[in-house]
Design a protein around this nucleic acid. Sequence first.
DNA 1: GGGTGTGAAGTTGTTCACAGCT
DNA 2: AGCTGTGAACAACTTCACACCC
Lengths: 223, 223
Amino acid sequence: MTNTSASRRDIPDATVARLPVYLRVLRALSGRGVDVVSSNELADAAGVRSAGLRKDLSYLGSYGVRGVGYDVERLSEEITRELGLQSDFAVAIVGMGNLGRALADYRGFATRGFEVRWLIDNDPALTGIHVGALAIVDFDGFRPAADESVIGVIATPPHAAQAAADALVARGVRSILNFASEPLDLPESVAVRKVDLATELQILAFHDQRTRPEPAPLVEVPS
Amino acid sequence: MTNTSASRRDIPDATVARLPVYLRVLRALSGRGVDVVSSNELADAAGVRSAGLRKDLSYLGSYGVRGVGYDVERLSEEITRELGLQSDFAVAIVGMGNLGRALADYRGFATRGFEVRWLIDNDPALTGIHVGALAIVDFDGFRPAADESVIGVIATPPHAAQAAADALVARGVRSILNFASEPLDLPESVAVRKVDLATELQILAFHDQRTRPEPAPLVEVPS
DNA sequence: GGGTGTGAAGTTGTTCACAGCT
DNA sequence: AGCTGTGAACAACTTCACACCC
């Protein structure tokens, strides 16, 4: 809802969630000098089915050539544009515990169009300390320009997550990646994605328990 | 498919993915001395709709009381049992870079039934070094008992992920949480979940770009 | 031949709305 | 009266299969 204004073309959420994966594969191919790829090869490398891949790409338009495949460069650009990644996004990480520091140093961001530009923590003992090339600031030191897009990453302890989110939103952040297990209560207009590590493990635990091979591989006694 | 043996009751994947969230909320309620909760309150705290919550819980059986709500303790136990979390799971983290170290120290695991028991890295310069109470070992030092369930967490650089996964599986691991962006090629019998941080950011970028308020909200003079 | 693009069918997940129990 | 449990309607997503084009 709230979808009042024009929503360009309507790309399903499930598709949007896979576009970054395709993009990564395409860039790897491009780096290896490949310039045409079939839906089968691409799907394989991305871990999806080829029919699904073709359907996903069809939402962007027709960028493939029948009997041949997709132009790697062209498709790459198209997805980049669709995801809005032509210009770099700035990232602000809140919470400089272990996880926050690890994220601050994470190499994968820069290579995919994200620049970590602020490290925020309200603990006065931490402000001023450098992590990599950046100094930790408190929220007063976080003043993004009104026209720049900043993605906020919450890596605080659970009880501080809501306050961190509110502070980010108050300063114009409209997209948040939340590592705290606490669900955030925010305006509809703010996009939130959650990564809860313990939840992921629990989901795996469920499947593990369900596919346990034998009931109890005890004993081997004859008798 | 491959669904040869009995699959107890059939709980939808989407429901399984939410059970851990409910469980966390229930435990928090329990800690605050609450002993009955309605689907509305629980749904609210978990960030879902009440009808959906009730449907989810209905897959576990009928543990609510009409006109009253759910017994917090009872439901907690039921979900715990269903997820297979009665006994602790052991976790092995592979790749002791920034992310691996952060995960090794992550407090959220222990409180949710997971014990990090192995820290693995094949770099000889790292083996023997302690991170918290555990020493880093190489794969030769990873010898879980045949009957214990271990969840493997891959926090290596992308190019090492497949080899790490293969090594885990060769030692009996059947559940893997993969932080590397590389998709893993593994037998069907191994459950894999992927957490790709850059992908999450890119999905947010898409939404951000799409909901940008005005073309250019300039002016207003600060100084 | 080879591989894309896409309606149609099938599957899975969500929401509604109300019967039924306490 | 209040709140759960659930069939039934609905919506989203996936897979199939084949027409169509190079």
